[in-house]
Design a protein around this nucleic acid. Structure first.
Lengths: 193, 193, 193, 193
DNA sequence: CCCTAAGCGAGACGGTACGTCCAGTCTTATA
DNA sequence: TATAAGACTGGACGTACCGTCTCGCTTAGGG
């Protein structure tokens, strides 16, 4: 029942990791458009051939980096448990930080022109936050602290979408932008749920 | 008092227009990443040198195409006057149409890696819709048909952002997605403002 | 019987002259290969169109510069009247001077690839010297100071050719190279005829 | 003690050879001025990048083609052993042949504008002939069949230079031009030495 | 203890696009 | 009509990456 046990030299985990990390760093510093496989390979200290053997296209590397957790949506997951406005404020503040905004925009570009990887990218990048928000909202509706006509999925889309929209258009969001989102979209008062 | 009257052969408006239109068509068919200046020039029947003389970078061409109205946000401006849900439904339906979704994604990619043009791109692309929405919302608040705690700017961001988010993640929006947005975010009933 | 008297603005002699002089200077400094019409026009303070109207090709400009005497074979004509060895020494010394050698090489290149201008170039550049040499040799033969079997044309070819060969191969000629040429080829003793 | 053994794909001798031969052919047909790296690459069936990797400038390709013997001075080396006039006649006849004259002119142009390669070009192209001539002349002097005051180096320069001069000026040399050179410059009778 | 299989770095190869320069041609306003 | 200004097509320049291809070396099983 064991696996057929592979022949030959095993794949180098070190090279794999170095490639993904170099990709993350470059995505960060030069953006998706100016990201090149040549640049990734050389920054990772890996040969071009090795990159092509395992990925073949730059969007595939980006996708794996995201799925592997090498690239994480800043401020997303660990905010679970707080109030909705708190989650949004944390997320907003994090997204707006220049070092993260560049990464977000790069990933938007990657998603934009890779038909196959975009959903994977977004489910991994924004999915956790999306889930946390949906859970919080559903709970609020159930407890009666939110209007009963709120559709949790749509609300989560809108909350994330608003932040994304502001990052892509390069409008900075004031520190209380999360509060305003919560009040406006959900009708909650600051400090509540 | 007249202008100094320019010397030399005047710039060809025909070439300018052909370049912008070729850019729009290619953006549409191959996306931003695979858009090349060489391809634009040849599709436009214009020499590469002419493109470089006037623009110098592909993002600049895209920006001008948008600002010039050669590329228009589908279903945006002309929806003015309808109900909010109606505007959103129309916009949503339009954005989701495959021929437009590709263009939207291409523009998101362009905005993502051109620091200088992104704001221009978005203010022209989404700005009119943004304004229409804000006006409708503000009017609704004033008339009392919307909650008074709604922040029109934030609401418009969220409405557009939600649609953008779904296009970028390639989740299609059902036909009534606009209705659900309006209900959830603004608390309006379908059919009402 | 008078000329038909030209209509319109007369050709600018100043532009013509400036073009030829700029050509000479550039030929001198960058050589024939890197000589460009664009460069000539701008160095001459003349528009490109004007150059094209009157010449059309860079070799034609070079040819006219030579024929017009703007470019002269250094040390050639004014050496007339001296002894043969003296002419050759003067010519050799002059050709070897770095500032002239560059010009000679440039003209060899021009002659090499312009079928129509090469003869004109050489007859004007080397012709006078050729003639002076032939006359001197013929006179020497007639006076009996040179062997009677000397063919003046062939001898002149060889004397000039030897110098040209050394310039093109970038071997410098020692100061007494002219003496050695005269002795070897004509059998004259230094200081005689 | 063995060589470090090179890594990577070995250089293609086929491409190297094809490039040099294409260069020779083009030099022949279009001359040096209209010779382009683009044209060489395409005629050789080689990518432009490969040409740039190994040579970088057209003069370097020409130089290697000469040094490698892909381009040979027509009628040069193999004439050794004949009489001086015979060598000159053979060389003269060969140089004057239209297919060779074009090549000679092209090489003169190449030598004229490549400071680094000109000596290499000429030592390889004319060097062997130069040596043969010098040897023949020195031997003639030693045997007493040539005047003792003849400087073999200068004489060889002049003999080659005369032919070169006529090729560059596009004056054709009559079939007996070699005889006339030998008689005039060396004082030998046709058929002797 | 070799043998075979695969991974890997190095680096050449044919290509495509880049951004620049120049060749020629053209169209305008001015002299 | 000549000229300067300057836009235009076209083509070559030299560079950067692409994706593919050989090499030699390394690192594992398995005979």
């Amino acid at each position: 029942m064991t696996e057929p046990s592979p022949r030959g030299r095993p794949r180098s985990e070190h090279s794999r990791r170095a490639t993904l990390e170099a990709t993350r760093d470059l995505l960060h510093s030069v953006g998706y458009d100016r990201l090149t496989i040549e640049g990734i390979a050389s920054a990772a200290g890996v040969s071009r051939q090795t990159v092509y053997r395992w990925w073949g296209a730059k969007s595939a590397i980006v996708a794996e980096a995201v799925l592997d957790g090498v690239i994480i949506l800043p401020g997303g997951v660990d905010a679970a448990g707080g109030s909705i406005a708190g989650i949004l404020n944390a997320m907003g503040a994090s997204l707006v930080a220049p070092e993260n905004a560049a990464l977000i925009r790069a990933l938007a570009a990657a998603a934009a022109d890779d038909p196959s990887a975009s959903q994977a990218l977004y489910t991994r990048m924004t999915g956790p936050t999306h889930d946390v928000l949906m859970a919080s909202i559903a709970e609020g509706v159930q407890r009666g602290s939110l209007r009963p006509d709120i559709d949790a999925e749509v609300a989560a889309d809108a909350l994330i979408g608003a932040l994304l929209y502001r990052v892509l258009t390069r409008q900075d969001s004031p520190p209380d932008y999360g509060d305003r989102l919560a009040v406006t979209l959900l009708g909650v008062l600051p400090g509540r749920v």
